[in-house]
Design a protein around this nucleic acid. Structure first.
Lengths: 151, 151
DNA sequence: CGCGAAAAGTTGGCATCCTCAACTGTCGAC
DNA sequence: GTCGACAGTTGAGGATGCCAACTTTTCGCG
């Protein structure tokens, strides 16, 4: 019944499509802004993204999980950050397999700049009544809470 | 006052950050699903994205605008799609500078498959009460309506 | 104890993206 | 007709991203 791909746009299906498009669109806008800021700071997108996700010393594995990408990918990204002198690798004495990523001072500085600028952009984008923001947060939280249901 | 970056997290700023994170998270989930589907159909992400955005014949420029990327980038992506026999370039007789992208039959087929699967994933992700969906759509629409305010 | 499975990172290979700087045709306006 | 703008392409070069194979280290288990 509902499977005909033809003309009747299907009222409910259209809402789903609309939602997906909107999320993509808003995320795209955020992403574009972020990349522009990163470029200003002379950082490629992925390296910038990794940077903002680094607070205290953390194993590379954690970063890989956070970025949802291959471990070897993180090696490359961290290579870049290290080449630029923003982070250093420090072997964990307790478990010599893991290397903790530690921000240098310049790394901290760059991270803060990046965070501040990104926040400003985000604030400009989410320029709607405070009530709406809270509502939006709650709804998105509900959606996100579905947690990797990827049978 | 509100400018100290230190400890008091600033109640309003935190909401913005939360929103940005949530949007990224949900979009990321969507994107990951989409990429997986694309991979199943033996398509790289960007090519798949281009494919779903092709309905009728359209100039390559339009696609570049849609994907918000460089024109030369589109050349490469379309090369890929053409190599796979999913689209063809047709010079516009009226303006011989522009080339219209036309889906082949296989291209149509693949596009429909991709669209259907992506829709299914999206439906699974936005698995909240219908009322919430509508509300979410309205809020996101409001945010998106800000239209490239990029002074 | 000692062995083998498993984890963290790295390396090499390979395809894809993506941007910038030329360059080719083509169009349009003056 | 000539010049400037536009569509697309090409080439160079850097980043991503995945996979498979490998090293080092840890841990479980008999």
């Amino acid at each position: 019944m509902t499977t005909q791909a033809a003309h009747p746009p299907a009222p409910e299906d259209q809402l789903i499509t609309e939602l997906a498009d909107l999320v993509f669109q808003v995320a795209g806008r955020l992403r574009q802004g972020f990349n522009a800021i990163a470029a200003d700071l002379d950082l490629p997108p992925a390296q910038a993204l990794a940077l903002v996700n680094l607070r205290g010393p953390a194993p590379m594995r954690d970063l890989a999980d956070l970025l949802a990408c291959d471990a070897s990918n993180v090696t490359g990204i961290v290579d870049g950050l290290e080449r630029r002198g923003l982070v250093t690798r420090r072997t964990d004495p307790a478990d010599r397999r893991v290397k903790h990523l530690v921000l240098t001072e310049e790394g901290q500085r760059r991270r803060d700049l990046l965070g501040a600028a990104a926040h400003a952009r985000a604030a400009a984008l989410f320029n709607v009544p405070q009530t709406d923001r809270r509502q939006l947060r709650d709804l998105l939280t509900a959606v996100a809470k579905h947690e990797q249901r990827l049978d």
